[in-house]
Design a protein around this nucleic acid. Structure first.
Length: 415
RNA sequence: GUGGCCAUAGUUCAGUUGGUUAGAACGCCAGGUUGUGGCCCUGGAGGCCGUGGGUUCAAGUCCCACUGGUCACCCCA
């Protein structure tokens, strides 16, 4: 085998693509119910868009992006996530001028050069939504609710919703300083990874998976206890709204988002049916991002969710989507009928009927086997005798029944 | 980027203490008195045993490297 797909990329083969279509359709339906409109942005952008929005110091920007120079020397990057592109488009197209609140969703491939493992690919797919133009807790709650509703509609129950507030540009720096001072005291006992983070991103130390780190930081101050008035009341409102929606959640004071642009609400939906990559969706509020990207200061909330991880759970459930099956297989019993079979198949297709016929000049037996393999609802065998008589036996392949039908009006019997 | 495990027909897997032309099941193709699928029977096609080195009289089997896959760390959706 000379050519293989690139490491970390996967073909979605015919057997599974119908399942993807079904899931994508469900996602779209839920978004439409909440009045989110689809936006489709290019899969590549100027590198600076991502490094600016996601954060120079994040792993994504630092070592995971597919970045290259195009032939004119510009630095281009395959999008590692969706929000930056959507916000770029929001600004570029002045979407906020036409209405105060813009609700968008997207679904498509993203690219990150990480080591592949269960639930992690280099080309993967995300769906997500952004509600831009509203600072209210109601909007945060709706964003969380739409994500939850998608999983509910797909029959996924074994998930947990964790929420936190990461503060704003006023209270977060103050808290970080308090936390940093505490962490410095135990720095030599922390894992090397955590030690590095004390200066640049102390909140991530609390998010460490290392058991010793967890124990050492068990009594560290949490940001939820150091929010300013504004952030605290916002957080309270989000929680009470979720409760009123009937959406269970747990407050996780250690939850941190991986991207730098988040403020106030942060949330994550995870599943214990996945492997170590157990996050199904994550999101939160990012009131500073649009201004950071050169737009007019505009508050915004959003989330992103992984398609592959969702599909992994649905596979386990033996969840199946209806694969389209041919309504009719036309078998030609002899040479004289082959042209008729093909022509008739075409005519029925013009009428919108799903029809298959033989293209390999196979024996009648082979054609019948093919009809069976395709799970066709009906088959009909036509030869010179039937052509002369103008009628043939239409066979129901699963009911094992047959009836004589006129060849010039097949479609009315196909049901 | 680091580590564990794995690599034999299209697929899932056998393959003895190293020993002749590498097997099974399913799938695929063809037949079963020439015009009818699913079950059954018969036959057939299909493998550089991941790649390259090494040990040995002899390697699918033992050793090394590489590649690929997979899981975990890391990171994240």
């Amino acid at each position: 085998m000379n050519y293989r797909s690139i490491k970390g990329t996967k073909d979605i083969l015919p057997g599974e693509s119908s399942r993807w279509q079904f899931v994508e359709q469900t996602i779209r339906e839920v978004f439409h119910r909440f009045n989110y409109k689809e936006i489709r942005t290019p899969v590549f952008e100027n590198t600076a868009l991502f490094s600016r929005s996601i954060g120079e110091l994040t792993d994504i920007v630092g070592k995971e992006m597919y970045t290259f120079q195009d032939r004119s020397g510009d630095s281009i990057t395959l999008r590692p996530e969706g929000t930056a592109s959507v916000m770029r488009s929001y600004i570029q197209n002045n979407l906020g001028e036409a209405q105060p609140l813009v609700k968008l969703y997207y679904i498509g491939p993203m690219f990150r050069q990480e080591r592949p493992q269960a639930g992690r690919l280099r080309q993967f797919h995300q769906f997500g939504a952004e509600a831009t133009g509203s600072p209210t807790a109601e909007t945060d709650a709706e964003i969380i609710a739409v994500a939850i509703e998608i999983y509910r509609r797909l029959g996924i129950t074994n998930y947990s919703l964790k929420i936190n507030s990461v503060g704003d540009e006023e209270c977060r720096p103050k808290y970080k300083e308090i936390l940093r001072n505490e962490l410095v005291k135990i720095a030599d006992k922390l894992s090397p990874e955590s030690q590095k983070r004390i200066e640049q991103n102390p909140m991530r130390v609390l998010d460490s998976k290392d058991e010793r780190d967890k124990a050492l930081t068990a009594n560290m101050p949490l940001i939820v206890d150091h929010l300013n008035e504004e952030c605290a009341s916002h957080f309270e409102k989000v929680k009470s709204l979720l409760t009123s929606f009937g959406i269970p959640f747990v407050v996780d004071g250690r939850l941190v988002r991986g991207l730098d642009y988040y403020t106030k609400t942060a949330f994550e939906i995870s599943s214990n049916e996945l492997g170590s990559q157990d996050a199904l969706a994550g999101g939160g509020r990012y009131d500073l991002l649009i201004k950071e990207l050169g737009g007019k200061s505009t508050p915004s909330v959003g989330f992103a969710a992984g398609m592959e991880r969702l599909m992994m759970i649905l596979e386990k459930k033996e969840f199946q989507s209806p694969e389209p099956k041919p309504a009719l297989f036309i078998a030609a019993a002899d040479e004289s009928a082959r042209a008729w079979a093909l022509k008739t198949a075409m005519q029925l297709r013009y009428q919108g009927i799903y029809v298959e016929t033989d293209l390999l000049n196979r024996s009648l037996k082979a054609q019948m086997k093919e009809a069976d393999r395709q799970n066709a609802k009906y088959s009909i065998v036509v030869g010179s005798t039937e052509l002369a008589a103008g009628k043939a036996l239409l066979k129901d392949l699963s009911e094992h029944t047959q009836q004589e039908v006129p060849l010039d009006n097949l479609q009315q019997f196909l049901r």
